[in-house]
Amino acid sequence: MEVARFWRTKGQRYQLVGEVCPSCGEKIFPPRDVCPACEKEAKTPYTFSGKGEVYSYSTIYSAPEGFEKYAPYTVALVRLAEGPLVTAQLTDVDAQDVKVGMPVEMVTRVLREDGERGMVVYGYKFRPVCANQGAAAQQI
C-alpha cells in the first residue's frame, strides 16, 4: 500500500493543480518547482482549466500489471489550453472516434483498484467535449 505516495499528489491528480512561474509566467504541469522555461524557482500553485485537445493517442492492448482488466483502453498526450502537455487516459469515447486535434476536457475517474481490500486510486482522465454542450449550457 503506497498511501503516502498517492496522498501527496492528490492536488495534481484530482484538480490539475500545477504551478505558474513568478518570473516568466510559464504555466507548469505536472508541478516541478524549477521552471522549465527560465530555470528559476517556481512554486506558486496554479489550477488548470482542464480544457485541451488531443496531441497524440494510442490504444493499449497489452497492459501493465494492475491494468489488464481495463484493456483495451486509450491513452493520449493532451495539449492543455494553457500550454503544457499531459499524459492521461481518454474516457467516454470509442477508440476509433479519437482524432488528433479533438477537443477534450478533464474528468476525475478511477485509475486503478488494487483488489477488494486495496486502494482505489483516482485521477484525471479526459473525455471529448460535446459540440453542442457549450450551447446547451448557455441556454440555461
Binding site: 494510442s58 493499449i60 497489452s62 497492459a63 501493465p64 491513452v75 499524459t87 487516459q89 485521477g123
Partner: peptide, 17 residues
Amino acid sequence: ALHGLSFVSINALLMRR
C-alpha cells in the same frame, strides 16, 4: 506509468504524432 501507460504506448504516442 500511474495512468496505465506501458512503455510501448509512450512510443506509440510518438509514432502516431
